[in-house]
Simulated assay, not measured.
Amino acid sequence: MVLLEFAMAPGGKGESVSEYVARILDVIDRSGLPYQLTPMGTILEGDWDEVMGVVTACFKALEPDCSRIGMNLKVDYRAGPAGRLKSKTEKIEQRLGRKLST
């Protein structure tokens, strides 16, 4: 199972790119994959082909009117079942004995 964290945005579109970020998040939300939105990116959970397919679809959503696209991508693969998107945080909270701000 893969956890993939990424941020993608067009270059040369001014200071605010929320219009483009919203376009990407629409693709992510419609994908059906578990995800977690953060202020600096999005974390997806799924099989390699699934999460990379979503990243590709996000790129394709920007490509028609964005001549430059920047992306940061981080991947963690671990064999086994799904559910790590939440369980990794829950494990740390359990060790600390308290809820964390997530």
Results as ranks from 00 to 15, higher is better:
E63F: 11
K86H: 10
V51P: 05
I69R: 10
G83Q: 11
L100F: 03
C66Q: 00
E15H: 07
C66A: 14
G32L: 13
P10D: 08
L96T: 03
S101Q: 03
S67P: 09
L73K: 01
T38L: 04
T89I: 12
G32P: 11
L4M: 15
P39R: 02
D49K: 12
R78A: 11
G46D: 04
G14M: 09
A61N: 06
Y35G: 02
D26T: 15
T102S: 02
K60I: 00
K91F: 03
G97T: 05
L44V: 09
C58I: 11
E5I: 02
V51R: 06
W48I: 14
V2A: 00
G12S: 11
Q36S: 10
A22K: 12
V21H: 05
L25M: 15
S67K: 15
C58D: 02
L4E: 01
G80N: 13
K99R: 15
E19K: 15
V54Q: 09
D26C: 04
A7C: 14
A57L: 04
M40R: 07
P81M: 06
R78G: 01
T56W: 08
R84M: 08
E50H: 11
M1W: 05
Q94M: 07
G70Y: 14
S16T: 13
F6D: 00
R30N: 03
C58Y: 05
K99S: 14
K86T: 15
V2I: 05
